[in-house]
Simulated scan of single mutants.
Amino acid sequence: MSEEYRAAPKASRRNRGFEAASRLLSERIRTAGEARGFAVSRLLTHWPEVVGEEIARLCRPVKVGYARGGFGATLTLLVEGAAAPIVDMSREKIREKVNACYGYNAISRVVLTQTAATGFAEGQAVFLTQPKAPPVPTPQIRAEARAAAEGCEDETLRSAIETLTRNFLIRSASRTAPKKGSP
């Protein structure tokens, strides 16, 4: 076989150019979806197309759980508290549309989990406390920040460098300062 008919060496990642984001992420999406029981990642990635825009705004799929025998999976949806009655009335319609996505009668039950829109950690109640006042820079910190930005000619950049330096020095000073009640 002559040299010209030999297969060219596989191009390195740098020489291939741009790739579609879907190709780059498809493996990760599939792996993450399978970890939560989603055999068909299309259910996660195209949720509004599967169930419709109106229902998709109210809920999102969280998990597909399979029974021990493997017959009749349960789809768990995350729903905001106020939207739960609307989604509850649409359970059968959601089940039919999801099964159409799978191509067979995979889902036998749809379960709703109610939560705040922001999630568990972010949705916690905010207690009324006195907000902490931002630390005031000492004259020495201000002078050090000004000195750090001294050689810069651009006013905006100089101001940004000064602010960054000032914040850094304030934070470092507060970390090294003795805590209240410590010897």
Rank of each mutant, 00 (worst) to 15 (best):
L43G: 06
V126W: 10
V126F: 03
I86N: 00
E34K: 13
L169V: 04
R23G: 06
K180F: 00
L157E: 01
M89N: 00
V126K: 13
S90E: 08
I141R: 14
G151A: 13
A73Q: 13
I29D: 08
S174G: 10
P135F: 03
L43W: 07
I29M: 10
R68T: 03
E122L: 11
T163M: 12
A84D: 04
L77C: 01
D88P: 12
T74Q: 03
T113E: 15
R142F: 00
F38S: 05
F18E: 06
P61H: 03
A117V: 14
L112I: 04
G65T: 04
A56K: 06
P139E: 09
L77S: 11
V110M: 06
I161Q: 05
K97Q: 12
L24T: 09
F38C: 07
R109L: 06
G123Y: 00
R36I: 00
I141F: 00
L43S: 03
A125R: 15
A121L: 15
A143W: 01
R13W: 14
A160V: 09
S159N: 13
A67V: 00
E54T: 15
T156I: 14
G69R: 09
T156W: 12
V62T: 08
M1N: 07
S172L: 11
F168Q: 12
R171I: 03
A121V: 09
T76N: 10
V51M: 07
R57Q: 00
A21F: 04
Y102W: 05
A117Q: 12
E153H: 12
P9V: 12
K93I: 11
R95W: 02
E122W: 06
A32Q: 01
L25C: 09
P183W: 02
N15E: 15
E92S: 01
S26D: 09
A73F: 10
L112P: 02
F127A: 11
L169M: 15
S26R: 14
A125P: 09
R146Q: 14
R16S: 06
E3A: 15
A133Q: 15
F18P: 11
K132M: 14
G123I: 14
P131V: 04
R158Q: 03
E80M: 13
R146P: 01
A125I: 02
R14T: 07
K10L: 05
R57E: 04
A147S: 07
A147Y: 11
L24E: 04
Q140C: 01
K179E: 15
A67D: 14
F120Y: 03
A32E: 13
R30S: 11
R68C: 05
P61N: 08
A73D: 01
A149K: 02
G123W: 05
E27I: 05
M89F: 11
N105W: 08
Q130H: 08
K132W: 03
Y104W: 13
R30C: 09
V64P: 05
K97D: 02
D154A: 09
A32C: 05
E150H: 13
G72I: 05
A84P: 01
T74N: 12
G81E: 14
V50K: 08
Q130T: 14
T115N: 05
I94P: 00
A173T: 15
L24H: 02
S172R: 04
N167P: 04
E92K: 05
E27V: 02
P183C: 09
C152N: 03
A39G: 13
F71D: 08
P85W: 08
P131D: 08
G52H: 03
R60C: 05
L75A: 08
D154I: 10
A116K: 12
E53G: 07
T165N: 14
V50A: 09
